[in-house]
Design a protein around this nucleic acid. Structure first.
Length: 575
RNA sequence: GCACCCAUAGUUCAGCUGGAUAGAACGCUAGUUUGCGGUACUGGAGGUCACAGGUUCGAAUCCUGUUGGGUGUACCA
């Protein structure tokens, strides 16, 4: 896996690591990765370097001695104000208040709040959402949609060229049934498509009850596949309508997917035989029991079937074709699949085949951005059983209704304002709850938890933001002046603000949105403490101090706003 | 059967390219407070990091095994 190189704009850790590296080099000590970590305790400073012990082992020298040498040669007149050796050879680092305030002051008017652009911009394909056109979007599509959208937004913000790909499921045998039903209903059909779920059920009933209908449905599958215009028209009509449903959900969710991002399964149809040919020609696939197979994991393990005995193709073939398109036509450097963890094996195999067959170049990074299952309160997955699925659209509507209940009593709202605020809060709650869990673990869905003002929730962030806006309203004048740090909490808060870039960088490399939410939570908690102890607008606060604290508040609000924006969550000025 | 994932406070979760006394939140509990939005802030109790070995200066983190749970596994996607 190769990682992009980032600029040194505000990258604190990389600056520190360069300082240490230089000092070690001057002492003729070679070190590959200088990993700087956040100090584990306040008394250990702001950052620490723990790598000396490892180096000492290799060099067979006393770690404390090396650490002492390093510390002696570190310049403490600039960024770093103090370094010390502790324990067996830890190096603790304190950053200078003036340096921090200079950095903070330099980003007061910066829309990017100090976050630079990547030096080596990559072309990144992010494949996410991928709903099935035969059905209405349900809770199972939620995580892919919002994690994928966040990843895309994040990478774009950091300067990568992002190509969103919505690999919608628009092909397969069930469409024969659906368009047969659509045609049978004639003019009413379009009307009945309002409720796709019901339409699917009705079609299924017809399929089961009428032999004649079932035969037509089967015929239609063949006809679509052979390019029959009449059937294709019905099919397009159906897909268009279904996609419209999805767009409604995207609009409500605030997910940035448009028709331009749709690259449906069917898009790859004509290319599938070519994939088989490539794999056959390279002797990667073999015929086994009539099916064309690739034995990725060995002869004794189940193979990946790329062509069925009856000549049909499977989704592995489609994915290989999509990989070819993305690496070839789209020229991607990195391809991210935001898909349920349960498909891990599939992607491992498909990635492996694509590299082996050189369908995808050696340098292209292929990543399965896996996520866990959404569970209900009893710890069971939201299952996709007939009739029992929770439609995503209903879930989102409920979120907004619940948000209204939560905030209604707080303030007098006009109806328009209540709707706007409740939407931001309700949708934000759903998204934040999902994004704040490390994505690979399963996720327990709880309305009460996600709509709480307490704890690591969107509402807590939005509340903090609104509270800061309220300070500005009360101040009701220009904020002019510089940040000056002479207090421990100011030091911590300003430094936290400056850590935004390191946080986003980490989140982008590991594709972990929860890195961002944890950071925001820490930031907001810190701000609340700062605000509690450092009066801003109270009588008796000197003007310079007041301005400095207002500026810190402003930067905090800017980071919250930008951070939430990357997560696809809106802020409001008043709750 | 085989493969992958998971197991951390009563609960929901962080921490995992090895580092100092394992962190939050909720809940419980004790405070602050005539409050620049108190849905705030401060403190306390609560842990054999599933279990057993191993690697080493040092393990929640890496390796092996055991137990318990989840998922996937030849012609759906």
């Amino acid at each position: 896996m190769h990682h992009p190189t980032y600029g040194t704009h505000m990258k604190i850790k990389s600056q520190l690591s360069q300082i240490i590296k230089k000092v070690l080099e001057d002492a003729n000590i070679e070190a590959e990765d200088i990993v700087i970590s956040d100090a584990t305790k306040p008394e250990f400073g702001d950052y620490q370097f723990n790598g000396v012990m490892r180096l000492a082992k290799i060099l067979r020298k006393n770690p404390r001695q090396i650490a002492m040498d390093v510390v002696k040669h570190i310049d403490t007149t600039g960024m770093i104000t103090k370094v010390e050796v502790a324990g067996p050879g830890f190096i603790n680092i304190w950053l200078d208040n003036r340096w921090i305030s200079t950095q903070a002051n330099s980003i007061l008017e910066d829309k990017r709040v100090g976050v630079g652009l990547v030096e080596n911009s990559q072309k990144v394909v992010v494949d996410y959402s991928g709903p099935n056109m035969a059905k209405q979007m349900h809770v199972g599509h939620l995580r892919s949609s919002i994690i994928g959208d966040t990843l895309a937004t994040l990478l774009e913000f950091l300067g990568d060229e992002v190509i969103r790909q919505n690999h919608i499921g628009d092909w397969g045998t069930q469409f024969g049934m659906l368009i047969a039903h659509l045609e049978e209903q004639g003019a009413d059909g379009n009307q009945n498509l309002q409720d796709l779920e019901q339409f699917y059920k009705d079609a299924k009933v017809r399929f089961d009850e009428s032999e004649e209908f079932a035969n037509i449905a089967r015929e239609y599958v063949v006809k679509i596949q052979s390019g029959d215009e009449h059937c294709l028209n019905l099919w397009r009509q159906f897909i268009d309508k279904s996609l419209g449903h999805c767009e409604e959900v995207y609009a409500k969710l605030g997910v940035n997917l448009t028709r331009n991002d749709v690259r449906a399964e069917s898009f790859y149809n004509s290319e599938l035989p070519n994939i088989i040919k490539i794999l056959k020609d390279k002797n990667i696939s073999t015929n086994s029991n009539g099916a064309e197979c690739v034995f990725v994991d060995g002869e004794d393990k189940p193979p990946v079937i790329i062509q069925k005995r009856d000549g049909g193709f499977l989704y592995a073939t489609t994915d290989l074709s999509a990989l070819k398109f993305r690496a070839g036509e789209l020229e991607a450097d990195r391809i991210c699949y935001v898909v349920d963890a349960r498909q891990g094996q599939h992607f491992k195999q498909v990635f492996s085949i694509s590299k082996q067959a050189n369908i995808v170049g050696e340098s292209v990074a292929l990543e399965h951005i896996a996520f866990g299952t959404m569970m209900d309160r009893s710890g069971k997955p939201f299952k996709t059983r007939d009739g029992g699925t929770i439609k995503l659209i209903d879930l989102l509507d409920e979120a907004v209704i619940r948000a209204k209940e939560t905030i209604k009593k707080r303030n007098e709202y006009s109806e328009a304002e209540l709707n706007r605020v409740a939407t931001a809060i309700g949708i934000g709650a759903v998204k934040y709850a999902d994004l704040s869990i490390s994505r690979e673990s399963n996720y327990l869905f709880s309305w009460d938890k996600m709509l709480s003002f307490d704890g690591n929730t969107a509402l807590y962030m939005q509340y903090a933001y609104a509270r800061i806006q309220s300070i500005f309203r009360k101040h009701n004048a220009e904020i002019i002046g510089e940040i000056k740090i002479d207090d421990e909490l100011e030091h911590k808060l300003a430094l936290m603000i400056l850590k935004f870039e390191d946080t986003l960088t980490k989140a982008s490399i590991e594709a972990t949105p929860h890195t961002i939410t944890s950071y925001l939570y820490d930031l907001v908690t810190l701000f609340m403490k700062f605000y509690e102890q450092n009066p801003i607008l109270k009588d008796g606060v000197e003007k310079e101090v007041k301005m400095s604290r207002l500026q810190l508040s402003k930067l905090t609000a800017n980071v919250i706003e930008k951070g939430l924006d990357i997560l696809g969550i809106e802020v409001v000025d008043r709750i």
